[in-house]
Design a protein around this nucleic acid. Structure first.
Lengths: 222, 222
DNA sequence: TAATTTGATATATCATACAAATATGTAGAT
DNA sequence: ATCTACATATTTGTATGATATATCAAATTA
């Protein structure tokens, strides 16, 4: 009784075809007419199915040139699909956890790849931070500092993943879904930089974990 | 020269509308006819644009009920799209790094959420591991053990991200892009479980980092 | 009141037509 | 024989109308 729509079925068949066939980027695709006859559906349905693949960046099409297999950029896909406002609470929470996981986990990459020049920039960010409002929690500064850290990993996939998830964090903060307790940020940004300069990979990693302690404790409290 | 197709333009407008409007899951969407009149395009174009949103899981539609905003699954897209993808070396490397980042970073989640029952299962996995081939590196065991850890985070987004990236790891292993040095995996799976049972969150985290030392050192060597 | 029928409405699919872009074939000039 | 200009065919892009199907809501009936 599982009667998915024709379009969905067709889309599935097309994806299956892509998997079976020895396709690589640039491989040609049958014409809409052929596909329609082959699969026994109208051209409309074929078109809609193809459209979905196009939306996902799996194929490209141009007038009269037919469709060809493309090499999709997965992260770009996610960028389009993420509309923070319509993500449910549970997903937002998981994304927030993912952020914590990423930041603690990337410590080693940051530690190994940070150069002297990078340290200067980090210091600058922290100073601007303390100039303005010393105690009040500011999302922009938070983003500036941590965003820089992502950048320092030298891993563009990781970095893009962060900017991808950023709107969700923003949303979480804006709606006070996660409140920042300002009492004792035992490990400040300044302290973190200090570890980065004088500590070890391990001490920096554990320092990062401490820096995020507020978030973690709230996570495990609920 | 913004000569994108009408469908793409329309899709963009619809997404913009979603971002502007105060939409949440379940919010109704104008009918195809209305949208067509509003945007000055035919119903065909509207349908194809809506179809794309449907493919991305951003909206749901059922006959006569119109379309409603859905709570999209951010990974769903990637899961569908990653199949035929041909990743270049650089991206593969970055994905591998991402794995390391995730596994070290998720240590705290694992540590806090692992139950006694989970420990039993982990022990079982490790024993099956040592029964077969004690010294030879086996991808399946690796996946079984680490996959279990992801599961223990209780974060389904994280867990799915792993299974999503898995094919890439497999590829990396298969092509010996990253060779596993079998000499002294100082921190074995068994040792890790021991930390999980008797250690602290920090010791487990650092143990996980040690366990992945081989990969890390190879990473930083090149 | 509860169940059923009916009607209105919106999406799902089909069929067709034409427009626009591109590839291909053809004729003529050189 | 080769090149160019033009005509033709092919394929996707867009538009329109028609029919099928599912759903809700109102009307009807028991």
């Amino acid at each position: 009784m599982n009667k998915k729509s024709l379009v969905e079925q067709t889309e599935k068949k097309l994806l299956a075809y892509l998997n079976e066939a020895d396709t690589k980027a640039g491989s040609p695709f049958p014409t809409e007419k052929e596909l329609g006859e082959e699969l026994g559906v109208s051209r409309t349905v074929v078109r809609e199915a193809l459209n979905r693949l196009k939306a996902m960046g799996i194929i490209d099409s141009r007038t009269n040139r037919g469709s060809v297999v493309a090499s999709p950029d997965i992260l770009h896909l996610m960028e389009k699909a993420i509309v923070p406002q319509i993500l449910d609470q549970e997903t937002l929470k998981e994304i927030f956890e993912l952020r914590l996981v990423l930041e603690v986990g990337m410590s080693d990459l940051v530690f190994m790849r940070t150069t002297r020049t990078d340290l200067v920039e980090l210091h600058k960010i922290v100073e601007e931070e303390s100039e303005k409002n010393g105690s009040i929690f500011d999302v922009d500064h938070e983003v500036a500092f941590h965003g820089k850290l992502y950048e320092l990993t030298g891993n563009s996939t990781l970095s893009r993943l962060q900017s991808l998830l950023l709107p969700s964090f923003q949303y979480v903060y804006d709606n006070h879904l996660i409140q920042h307790s300002e009492d004792t940020a035992f490990m400040s940004h300044k302290d973190l930089i200090h570890e980065l300069e004088n500590g070890t990979a391990e001490s920096f990693r554990n320092g990062m974990r401490k820096h995020l302690e507020n978030h973690y404790s709230r996570l495990f409290a609920s």
